[in-house]
Design a binder for these strands. Sequence first.
DNA 1: CTGTTAGCGCCTTCAC
DNA 2: GTGAAGGCGCTAACAG
Lengths: 357, 357
Amino acid sequence: MKKTTINDIAKEAGVSKATVSRVLNHGELVDEETRNRVLDIIQKHRYSPSLVARNLSNRASNTIGIVIPEIDNAFYGKILRTIVNITDAEDLIPVCFDTGNNAEKDVRSLCVLRDLRVGGLIYAPSVEYGAACVTKQAKQLLDDMGVPTVLIDRHVPDFQRSGVFFDGFDAGYRATKILIAAGHVNIGVVTGSLKLGIARARLDGYRKAHEECGLPVRRALVFEGDFTSETACLLSREMLSLPERPGAVLTCNNDTSLGFLQALGEKKLKIPRDIEHVGIDEIDVFDDLHMRYNHIARSRVEMAQAAMALLLAQIRNPDARPENVWIAPRFVLDARLERVAVKHKIIAKTQKGASRP
Amino acid sequence: MKKTTINDIAKEAGVSKATVSRVLNHGELVDEETRNRVLDIIQKHRYSPSLVARNLSNRASNTIGIVIPEIDNAFYGKILRTIVNITDAEDLIPVCFDTGNNAEKDVRSLCVLRDLRVGGLIYAPSVEYGAACVTKQAKQLLDDMGVPTVLIDRHVPDFQRSGVFFDGFDAGYRATKILIAAGHVNIGVVTGSLKLGIARARLDGYRKAHEECGLPVRRALVFEGDFTSETACLLSREMLSLPERPGAVLTCNNDTSLGFLQALGEKKLKIPRDIEHVGIDEIDVFDDLHMRYNHIARSRVEMAQAAMALLLAQIRNPDARPENVWIAPRFVLDARLERVAVKHKIIAKTQKGASRP
DNA sequence: CTGTTAGCGCCTTCAC
DNA sequence: GTGAAGGCGCTAACAG
């Protein structure tokens, strides 16, 4: 039992396949009568042309590749969903890979996408985690593919492409400023692997805030993790056991915040009674439950939309110049911290009521 | 600047494309010397054959379609990630659609997948939400595609295909039994749309437990929602304002549990001081934070793995008979409820230490 | 308006 | 071992 093809239709309709192809693609160029006849037969056989053949013939593909780490992380999950909703609306076909933050998988995924001759690419690289040679391979592949590409959330070092990024430096900087303004001098920080640019940026912001305020950055208060809750919890336990326990803590992504909060719970410490805390990234459940959680949100929907906008623009106009979009941090603070932040002009003013992304 | 093709390689190597094709696919059939020469040229040009052309020629595709609602829901996010990790290991290419629980989008997604001539399909239908005619279309499409298909999590009514399902009836039944065994007679329930089979199953379990214990099912305590936290919260507020407030509540999926917990927080009610609660589905964050949350987990990883196993089996052996796998509920209860459950032989015995999926 | 022809890039017989 | 030829299903000129 074979799939019916354009030939079968043509034969049965007593026309050439060119005509069938025409009613399929440029219906108006075909005599109404023959068109209807062909259409009828198509319907009868429930025929629908093969995209594979069509793509080959057109040497163009309406397929776009998506390469992200940790699909099941709420951050990327939301991004992915936003992306596929857009691809859907634009009649693009999303092919999706998860790298698990493994640079080798970046390369493998890009290989497949290259062989698939996708027409575009949204890419959240984990290559920074990997060896230099892997990064080089990935860049090479991107070049080889020669298709519109938009980086999202993370950079590829020394690589000139469009991208949508979160201003992690600003987030780290302002978060720390706020804590300092609230009277803290002893501020701990749990961040991700400093091999990752985004982790470094956030920590740099933390440092800058200290310098600007004439405060020393105490090495003992800087904890380099890996953006997982497990590691963050271990580090946080350590931090909270310090003889001079920090009065405030900055945690640099959603899972890190969770790890920290877990450690906090174990020690029976309460926010803000015993310690102050600002996290980076929203945590949906806390929102749902209206739980207190001072944090800086990076709008996932906004990022994904911006990325797709850039991608579509590039697909439509291939010689568009690379363009970077920076997504501004959004502050979600309790009344007290917000007052402090506004008073010190660290944030513009209350953003309450801003729709959750 | 054109992509290099098999022809370019053949020409440069001074051989025919047949030979190049051979070194690509059946290297051993080619003289070592020529093979190496061809290989060198391939490397030099960084040539890699087009999967599109190859698929067309082979009239077979290593592509598999994935259609799920709500990619950003942690439940499906985890499933998706597990699936793509497996497709990756099996050299399959995942094409992924999100339907947002919109039956029309089910149909649209299946259409694209059909045109793509995917080699297999993992499908979590939302068609039950839709009109009968839409369901019919979806079934028709599945038939037209004629490729191995595995349903996951949700049924398509009257449709004979392989599938991996959670035993929601059993979950609802045993959860309710436990609450009854714990001394409750006034048990509220918040469920999803009863148009959905999985919602009905869970509620049926709740009913069965009541019957079996000679307890009446009070209609006022049955709240039909839609599996979203917003609706669940509204309904829960209502429930908690009842003159005869239930002493225990069953909530039938993760978001519903969240909605309920939010309403609970608003009323300053505490578990288990004021009310008892069992939810269906895990909520990762609660796990991470070691928060108290009595629930019945449906193992997402297990489901996804089972689904892929069925799919691969079917792909390898096309006349394998349809097969259904039922994933057993896993109970995660606090000490008191667990003791009650074990004592009444509702659950076998402590499952503590079971790895989180 | 419609049919013929010639690919798209690759694979697989078949001869040699 | 290798090349020539034909075909996968479809589209895009080019003639009529």
